[in-house]
Structure formats: C-alpha cells, structure tokens
Amino acid sequence: MFQCKDLFKLPSLSKMKIIAGNKGLHKIIRWSYKAESIHLAKWVHGGELLIVSKMVIHEKDFNLYNFLKEAISLNISGALLLIGPNYIEQIPQSVINLSNQKHFPLFLIPWDTPLVDIFEELGHAIASINLINDKHKDLLFSIIFNTNLSLDYLKYQSQEVNFSFDGYLQFFEINFLLPQSENAIILNDVDKDTICQFIHTLFENEHIPILSSSYTKNIIALINVNNTSLDTLNTLFPQILNYIKENHPNYIVNIGIGTRQKSLEKYKLSYEQASKCINLAIKQKQKNMIYYYEQLGLYQLFYDINNKTLLENFVHNILYSLMAYDKKYNTNLIQTLEVYLNKNCNLNQTAETLFIHRNTIKYRLQRIEEITNTSLDDAFTRLNFFNAILIKKFLQ
C-alpha cells in the first residue's frame, strides 16, 4: 500500500515539505483528487490525497480550515497545498492545529510544480503496489481454494512478493464485528488497507515474511515462521489487537491463529484452524480476543470430531431434562448451573453474578439435582455437566 510518507520518494515532489500532521504519515493513499469545488462529499470515497490548487481557493465561500475539516471527516488521507501568489499564501495556525490534532498530513509545494508529473508518478506508484497486493491475494486464495496446487508454482509466484515457502508456515485471521449489533461488518477500503499496512510493517520489522489480503469482514495472512520464536509471535499479535482498538474503536476484533505447517498439503489446514478459532470467538460472543488453535483444549477435540451426532447425543443425555424443564416453566436452571460451575461452585460468587439471593441459588441447584437425579457433590457429575454445556454452546 502507498502511504503518505512515500510521497517524498516521488521526483516530482522533491520540493515538497510537510508542515503538520506528521503522525498521520502512515495513512494509505488510494488515489489523488484535485479539488474543483469546496464541496467534496460527492467526489471522494476516502483515502485520497487532496490537491488544493488555484480553482477552489478562489471560490466565494472558500475557507481553508472548514475545507480541510470536511476532508478529514470524509476520511481523506492528506492534503497537498500549492503555495504562492494568487494561490495559498499563508497557513492559519488554526489549520496547523487541526492537522496535528487529527493526524492529517499537510504538505506544501510551490505553485509552479507541474501537476501532470505528480499525477503520473503517483498513479504509477499506486498501480505497482496494487499489482503486488493482487499477487498476495492470488497466492493466498490459491492455497485456500485450489486443490491442484504445486509447491513449484507457489515458489515461482512468490519471488515477486518477497515471500518464502521454505520451512514452517502459519495462517492467522482477523475478524471484525460491529459493537452495537455484534454482527459481521465489511471493512471499508481505507481501514482495510491501513490495517494491512500496519500488519505488514510490524512483521517485516521482525524479518518475518508475510502475505496478507482482506475479504468482506476478515483479513487473512500467511507468515513464514521458520526462524521465529513463539515468544516473538506472542508479542506481535497483541500489538495488532491494540493498534486496531486504539485507531479503529468502532470495531470489535478477534484474532484466530492456526498451527505451524511444513507441507503444501497442510497449509490449508492451518487456515481452517484459524477460521475455527474465529467461529468459536463469535459463538462465545468474545470481544478483542486472541485464539491459538493449539490452545483450544476441549474445543479443539469438538472441532476434530467428524461425527457431530456423537456430540448432540452427549448433550441430550446430560441436559435434556433441564432443557425441557426450562422451556416448560420458563426458568433458567441451565444458566444457573453454567455460572455455578464457572465460579468453581462458589454460591456467593454465583449469586453476585446473577444478581439474585444466595438462597435462590441453593434452591435452583437442589431442583437441578432432583430433575436430573444426580448429585453436584460428585466431581464426575460436575464434569459431565460442564462439558455438556460447552458442547451445547459449541453446536448452537
């Protein structure tokens, strides 16, 4: 992805300087837009480099502060101001303060710089990067969906994207939800590109080869962990989580991580494991969690059991009488039992969690024993109840 900081690499912008918004230099530029009206909403989609030239500044109601404020609200990545006689001659302090506060890069360049050169160089740079991004996506989707794939093909294609298929590889997946509804959300292109760029930079700084792409509500990535310790990875994934939480607080995020695999036949397995981690997080309504497949415990066993009927029968045998009772009398015995077991059979903590009196908990537990003809003093009984509740939630 082409970032604001990459503008300094373009020969046509050799005289450009930045006067505010330095903390936003990581922002992604998807294209450029030369403003021809003070009203931007109709003409931009977010992620543009806004070029402010002579035409717009001579409009009757032009105000640089209000103009850039609207640009920021439309998720434009930065602004390039042409300065000089009959152009912008002075930058108000309020504009500089706004740009710094919103991390909105504000660049200046002499008015006589040929814009056609800027458009041409920027267009070529963005197109080249997009081509690499497309290769990332093609490689990842080939691994996931192509059943007739060869390792030689992958190695040949990966040469252009600086990725190695030698050694151990590992998939991870990032899922995004909307907080208000906890429904899946399709990422907008600007957020998606910015997050992907952060992830790439994070792993590249640790010399970890990475392929990444996004689709609908997820970002998927494949990393070469042949020379990477678990301790290093255990520091990187929380950094991704914290970055998204701080910079995109409008999303709920969960990260699923598959196991390390060394053969072409098993790469797809790592992806499927990462996806299973995401599915589990969604089922459990988890928020901003990191799941390693190899650490799922019993859930890993549930996923690996091909015959789901066995799981359904186990739940039925252990919980059917309680489910039927709850349904008939509109009670919450299974919920009470779940909280009681999760609180290590502590009556006081169970009562506090459910906001009901301790004696009510005792009565409900007594009813559970009577209905199921069991004793909660028995450790094996408690284990069966606990596992049945886990499987029930897993199967929902």
Rank of each mutant, 00 (worst) to 15 (best):
Y168L: 11
N330R: 08
Y267I: 14
N188V: 06
V95K: 10
K283R: 15
N146C: 11
A127H: 07
K192M: 08
N130D: 13
L211D: 01
N317L: 00
K217W: 02
I356M: 13
F176I: 02
I143G: 15
H26N: 11
I83C: 10
T353M: 14
F141S: 08
E370A: 14
Q170L: 14
Y87T: 00
T350L: 03
N346S: 12
L233R: 05
C277E: 07
C4K: 04
S321I: 00
S128H: 11
K23E: 15
N387K: 14
K285H: 13
F385D: 05
T201I: 06
L108G: 04
F380I: 12
T201Q: 11
A351P: 02
P114G: 05
L341A: 02
A35Y: 03
R382T: 01
F145A: 14
S181P: 03
L74V: 11
I83R: 06
E121K: 09
N344W: 08
I278G: 00
S164L: 12
L376F: 03
E246Y: 04
I208H: 01
G123I: 01
F119T: 06
K15Y: 11
M289F: 03
Q273K: 11
K102W: 04
H124S: 11
W31M: 08
N332M: 07
F314L: 09
K155M: 13
G258A: 08
F237T: 02
E70Q: 13
E370K: 14
S14H: 08
S212K: 08
A35E: 04
Q396F: 12
L187M: 03
L178E: 14
L68I: 05
H316W: 00
P114E: 07
D231R: 12
S94E: 15
